[in-house]
């Protein structure tokens, strides 16, 4: 395991999301899930980050900002799109101002489906993206893996 996988620093960008994904994402940082176990640190800015975590569908206004944030990250870098909106635009896809999923603007490496995805799924997505940091961008599979389907709503297992 290389050091890149051991210390993926993430920056989170809310791209017009309904905050559902964001709340689940922030749950990852709490003592119950504690992503810092994996060396994951939630940094506040793209200059320090390895992985960009985007939630929500891209619209005409925030596409530019998303692109800027992505470009300010030093490579190697990876992108994780959260939720249905991040993947395709989801429920917002047909809105007049919505462009669609995150990959309309920047290359996405991992899609984490769900509406919203559960924290375990998000963590899994981030760790998969961390593995991709070792792979050159050109060799990466586009839209890497859609492993998880929609989760049933219910209590999380006893943790």
């Amino acid at each position: 395991m290389s050091c890149r996988e051991k210390s993926p620093w993430i920056v989170h960008f809310n791209c017009n999301s309904c905050n559902g994904c964001d709340i689940e994402f922030l749950a990852c940082l709490t003592p119950i899930y504690d992503v810092e176990r994996f060396g994951i640190v939630h940094v506040g800015n793209p200059k320090h980050a390895d992985i960009l975590v985007v939630s929500g569908a891209v619209n005409h206004r925030n596409a530019r900002v998303l692109k800027n944030v992505y470009e300010q990250m030093p490579s190697p870098k990876a992108v994780v799109a959260l939720g249905a909106c991040g993947a395709t635009g989801g429920i917002m896809a047909d809105c007049y101002n919505v462009l669609g999923g995150v990959e309309k603007v920047i290359p996405v490496d991992v899609l984490v489906p769900g509406c919203p995805p559960r924290p375990e799924a998000i963590m899994d997505g981030i760790l998969q993206a961390a593995k991709l940091l070792n792979v050159r961008r050109e060799d990466r599979p586009i839209e890497a893996e859609v492993r998880l389907t929609l989760q049933p709503v219910g209590e999380p297992e006893n943790v």
Partner: peptide, 10 residues
Amino acid sequence: VREPFLCGEN
């Protein structure tokens, strides 16, 4: 060279 961080609103 990258532009300075201004929350992406450069």
